[in-house]
């Protein structure tokens, strides 16, 4: 794979997260290279969401190095992600229920310019912002929903809008939190295609329960169990790894 030689966009080393006495993650190492889709799997409670929360700043790690675009730096706060060309979707809907579809996307696109107070108070949305928000929705086939309140969207539609918001800033890295969760077969097929299409420009880190989706779209997979990394490799390698099979059988699920 050509991306193997390229420097990673995102690299994590020795990540340890502790909640009180409980070690949620210990000594996790992870890399995401340009053009890659990397899956994070593991039984419930393995630490997948905590890993995402650490990367996106909702959880403060006790230990760990964070390297972004080749430069080691402090862990990000959630509001800094967009500015660093990172986006994250949330499990479930993850939209502002009170706002319209268009406003939901606009809220993310306007971040860069909200920095000065004067601009924030007096500045309206300029034409370029509006166009970007519109295009992002168009790309997700939701342009016709622009004026609809998020609270009245169907579940699959709200997932599309959430994706439009995550992609409107053209991020280099996208953290996808269970994109296929709650979707039907047809929408899952659409989601797989979408992931395939966007990975050219946006590298993806993916947490997903649907194993068929993970095995199909991911270039590499990390397997967590009880907060520890028990395997990593290509879908083929991971599928045949005895430790992975044991972890999944042990928790009553199938790999």
């Amino acid at each position: 794979m050509s991306s193997a030689e390229q420097a990673p966009l995102l690299e994590i080393k020795n990540l340890t997260v502790q909640f009180g006495g409980l070690k949620a993650l210990s000594n996790i190492a992870l890399q995401l290279r340009p053009g890659e889709v990397v899956g994070i799997i593991g039984p419930n409670g393995a630490g997948k969401t905590t890993l995402f929360n650490a990367i996106s700043g909702f959880v403060k790690p006790q230990k760990g190095e964070f390297t972004l675009y080749g430069e080691e730096r402090a862990w990000l706060a959630p509001h800094q992600l967009i500015g660093q060309s990172l986006s994250r979707t949330l499990q479930g809907v993850g939209l502002f229920q009170d706002l319209t579809v268009f406003e939901n996307v606009l809220a993310a696109v306007e971040e860069e310019k909200r920095s000065t107070l004067q601009n924030a108070f007096l500045g309206g949305s300029d034409a370029q912002d509006l166009e970007r928000a519109h295009m992002a929705l168009e790309n997700m086939y939701c342009a016709s929903l622009e004026g609809v309140k998020a609270s009245s969207l169907s579940y699959p539609d709200s997932k599309r809008v959430a994706l439009a918001r995550a992609l409107v800033t053209n991020p280099k890295i996208l953290l996808l939190d269970e994109p296929a969760g709650g979707l039907g077969a047809q929408e899952i097929a659409w989601m797989k295609q979408l992931i395939h299409n966007i990975k050219v420009k946006t590298s993806i880190l993916l947490v997903e329960h649907h194993m068929d989706v993970v095995m199909e779209v991911c270039d590499r997979i990390y397997v967590l169990n009880f907060g520890e990394l028990i395997a990593e490799g290509t879908p083929e390698q991971v599928r045949n790894n005895p430790a992975v099979i044991a972890a999944y059988l042990g928790s009553g699920a199938t790999a």
Partner: peptide, 18 residues
């Protein structure tokens, strides 16, 4: 927009850069 957005879902707002 930021005021209206952040009222209910602070997590989502932060991810939107607010």
């Amino acid at each position: 927009l930021a005021l209206r957005a952040s009222s209910f879902q602070p997590e989502i707002s932060r991810l939107a850069g607010i």
